[in-house]
Amino acid sequence: MTASSERKLVRFASGDSECAAWHYPGTNGACVIMAAGGGVTKEPGTDPFARRFHEAGFTVLALDYRHLGQSGGRPRQVIRVKEQLADWQAAIEFATTLPGVDPAKLAIWGFSLSGGHVLRVAARNPRLAAAIAQTPLVDGQVAARKTMRHRRPLPMLRLMGRALRDAVGSPLGRPPLLVPLAGEPSTVAFLTTPDGLDGDRALNPGNRYPQWPQTVAARTTLRIGFYRPTRDAARVRCPLLVVVCDHDQSVFAEPGVRAAQRAPRGELVRMPGGHYEPFLDGHEQAVAAELSFLHRHLLDPAPAVRPATGAAAP
């Protein structure tokens, strides 16, 4: 089954502003709501998967969080977890109003930071039909501790200093102090892991998305380490697919594995490679697993049977 038409830009209210999203009209009544990783806009962060879901007949709603991309909100390039979770709620409500969408057939999809959001959003929305967390950041404490080995002391101190100045300047109305999303260990950047450097190659090949800034407010560094959506895994009632990569050095595989095990209807797919492998050589494997999961739980639902621990979705 092929989708009926190409995507169009839509907007919906969230908080005191609005979110922009690509709407891909589908044909099978089911809808996948998507959001990209931390500081990544909807085009580089969802296009490769959104188009494949759309081609399979699913409606897709791929959003930019407030303060990023084409969405509203000032200041820019700021990540606020509470607001992003509210953006998810607004997107879910908006998706139920889209033509041809069955409100009983909604799924959510996110990777990296948004993959962590998926657990929290699914736990708060028991009527969702399915959820996919791809290479998710589910335990910021583990990630912060383990990624320290890829930071050199002086750049790390400079990053912390910049983050503190940014945090102090925020209530005073000063513009954000930005840092690159990724860089070498000798640089001041949000992520300095070896596979973190794959982000531009994976998400922006050939500079396909030149308008993506690839920066984030430095204050984000102070907050992400305390974010632990893994604590919500046991409260996720819908089928949950967690896709992890065994050589992920940015969010690490094991916290995601444990989250899948804690979820009552959790399923797990393990892949080789680093954090961005589902966008690189592992793309077809990831798409196949995710489409199979969506078909089983949105289009051909059967009585819930939990897979054996560590089992991969077919």
Rank of each mutant, 00 (worst) to 15 (best):
T2F: 04
R7C: 14
L9D: 03
A13C: 04
E18V: 09
C19P: 12
W22T: 03
H23T: 02
G26M: 09
T27I: 00
V32H: 07
M34A: 04
A35G: 04
A35E: 08
A36W: 06
G39Q: 13
V40G: 08
D47R: 05
F49R: 00
A50Y: 02
R51M: 15
G57N: 09
D64R: 01
Y65R: 15
H67G: 14
H67W: 10
Q70V: 12
G73S: 14
Q77T: 08
I79P: 10
V81R: 14
L85M: 11
D87I: 15
Q89Y: 13
I92K: 04
D102P: 02
P103Y: 07
A104D: 10
A104G: 00
I108T: 05
F111N: 05
L113N: 06
G115H: 10
L119P: 05
A122R: 01
A123W: 01
R124I: 02
N125A: 08
R127G: 13
R127N: 15
A130D: 11
D139H: 01
G140Q: 07
R145S: 10
K146R: 12
R151L: 08
P155D: 02
L159G: 04
G161T: 07
A163C: 15
A163V: 08
D166E: 06
A167L: 12
P171V: 10
P171W: 09
P171A: 10
P180S: 05
L181K: 04
A182Q: 13
A182I: 14
E184Q: 12
D198F: 07
G199P: 09
R201D: 15
R201F: 09
L203H: 07
N204K: 14
P213A: 09
Q214R: 14
L222R: 14
G225H: 08
R228M: 12
R228W: 06
R231I: 11
P239S: 03
P239Q: 01
V244W: 06
C245R: 00
D248C: 06
G256P: 13
R270N: 09
R270F: 04
M271E: 06
H275Y: 08
P278S: 05
E284R: 06
A286W: 12
V287P: 03
E290A: 03
E290M: 05
S292R: 12
S292Q: 06
R296C: 01
P303W: 04
V305I: 10
V305W: 04
P307Q: 02
A308W: 07
A308N: 03
A312F: 02
A312L: 03
A312R: 06
